[in-house]
Amino acid sequence: MRAVHVTEFGGPEVLRNVDLPDPAPGENQVLIEVDHAGINYADTHQAENTYLAPTRLPLVPGGEVVGRTVDGRRVLALLGSGGYAERAVAEPAMTFDVPDGVDDVTALSFVVQGTTAWLLLRKSAHLEPGETVVVHAAAGGVGSIAVQLAKAWGAGRVIATASSEDKRNLALELGADVAVDSRAQDMTAALREANDGKRVDIVLDMTGGTVTDQSVAALAPFGRLAFYGMASREQPKPVQLGNRLSHSTTIAGMWLPHAFGLPGNVYGTALKELFDLALNGKIRAVPGGEFGLSEARKAHEALRSRGTMGKLVLDPRR
């Protein structure tokens, strides 16, 4: 089968197109003929071995696919790796039937990025009706869904940040009340200005560095910052517990795999609710572009440049 192969750690240049043997499913595993694979920012970290979980070589990247099983079921699956290929193997517990009316891009938008947005707002930030929510990178895969969920769940004001006018316009189309340039030199002041001079209740952040530090400074008493990535590859300042105490603010980290073992099938509940919201026209996926297998390197370059919007997918048939 055709696949993307990584044999040394690095940037997009380490992604190579090769022919590999078909994966052999183990007992009770599911073999999937891949129609589309999702492309996530985490894939770029996996390729350079800077992800939260260590990467082992050799590697076929890709943690999510939609396609058909041997018996013809149309399924969505989460994988540890192996998605950038014509065929992939998944565990039954991480394989989900895709409802009629949900297209491939929507399904792939929800399996990681949609559930991440759901968990950030529900479990990490505990959004309450009327609160002000800041969504950084609001035109991206997680951000574009988080903007819509925050509005659907009663946020009083949603402030989106993005780096270009096109991205800010997209965030406004998705329901954001205000859109702020993410390149603002003083993000604290920019967020307060966007909130009529008041501090904000919730910030969803995957940027890191100065943006995170200045976003924490913009929090109101009992405000929460939910941190789920570091696209800038810059560490924020160390957390000073005394500062959190004196300002009554919370910083929460969130990594999606920790949701898989939660009691009550929280992950499955999130995915089902997202499907229902989409089928009822309450939220929508934002297609960010389709790449062929031979264009995986180009896709990673686009992601790292932070010039993309919405959900990127890979078609292993071309």
Results as ranks from 00 to 15, higher is better:
residue 143 G to K: 03
residue 147 V to H: 05
residue 214 Q to T: 11
residue 208 G to R: 00
residue 112 V to F: 04
residue 272 K to S: 13
residue 56 R to H: 14
residue 7 T to I: 09
residue 190 A to F: 10
residue 315 D to L: 06
residue 263 P to D: 10
residue 134 V to G: 02
residue 100 D to E: 15
residue 304 R to E: 14
residue 49 N to E: 13
residue 9 F to M: 05
residue 87 R to P: 06
residue 293 L to I: 15
residue 9 F to C: 10
residue 188 T to A: 06
residue 58 P to V: 14
residue 113 Q to P: 07
residue 79 L to Q: 01
residue 234 E to K: 13
residue 103 D to M: 11
residue 231 A to E: 01
residue 141 G to I: 01
residue 111 V to C: 01
residue 218 A to E: 08
residue 177 D to M: 08
residue 168 R to I: 13
residue 137 A to C: 04
residue 139 A to I: 03
residue 151 K to N: 08
residue 30 V to T: 12
residue 150 A to M: 10
residue 176 A to R: 08
residue 194 A to T: 01
residue 236 P to L: 05
residue 229 G to K: 07
residue 153 W to K: 10
residue 272 K to N: 14
residue 78 L to M: 15
residue 86 E to K: 06
residue 316 P to R: 04
residue 288 G to K: 04
residue 48 E to N: 14
residue 110 F to V: 00
residue 301 E to I: 13
residue 34 V to E: 01
residue 214 Q to P: 08
residue 263 P to N: 07
residue 231 A to L: 11
residue 256 L to T: 11
residue 62 G to C: 09
residue 157 R to S: 04
residue 27 E to V: 14
residue 247 H to Y: 10
residue 70 V to C: 04
residue 290 E to N: 03
residue 1 M to C: 08
residue 185 Q to P: 08
residue 163 S to R: 12
residue 148 Q to K: 13
residue 236 P to E: 00
residue 104 D to A: 12
residue 155 A to K: 04
residue 200 V to E: 06
residue 32 I to C: 08
residue 154 G to M: 03
residue 18 V to Q: 11
residue 127 L to G: 07
residue 204 L to I: 12
residue 280 N to G: 15
residue 11 G to M: 02
residue 73 R to I: 09
residue 22 D to K: 13
residue 208 G to Q: 04
residue 190 A to R: 09
residue 15 L to Q: 03
residue 241 L to P: 01
residue 75 V to I: 05
residue 119 L to Y: 12
residue 217 A to F: 06
residue 66 V to R: 02
residue 201 D to W: 02
residue 40 N to Y: 05
residue 13 E to V: 07
residue 44 T to R: 03
residue 257 P to A: 07
residue 31 L to H: 12
residue 223 G to K: 03
residue 19 D to R: 14
residue 30 V to P: 00
residue 239 V to P: 02
residue 104 D to K: 01
residue 171 A to P: 10
residue 279 L to R: 12
residue 51 Y to K: 11
residue 48 E to S: 15
residue 290 E to Q: 13
residue 133 V to L: 02
residue 39 I to P: 10
residue 75 V to Q: 02
residue 168 R to D: 06
residue 70 V to G: 09
residue 167 K to L: 09
residue 61 P to T: 01
residue 151 K to V: 14
residue 172 L to C: 11
residue 200 V to W: 05
residue 75 V to H: 03
residue 159 I to Q: 02
residue 210 T to W: 10
residue 220 A to H: 11
residue 49 N to L: 10
residue 53 A to T: 15
residue 253 G to D: 05
residue 207 T to N: 04
residue 301 E to A: 14
residue 9 F to V: 08
residue 123 K to V: 07
residue 107 A to E: 01
residue 275 F to D: 00
residue 98 V to K: 00
residue 102 V to C: 01
residue 314 L to I: 13
residue 212 T to E: 09
residue 174 L to K: 06
residue 261 G to V: 08
residue 34 V to R: 07
residue 280 N to H: 12
residue 184 A to V: 07
residue 145 I to Q: 01
residue 125 A to L: 07
residue 162 A to E: 11
residue 161 T to H: 09
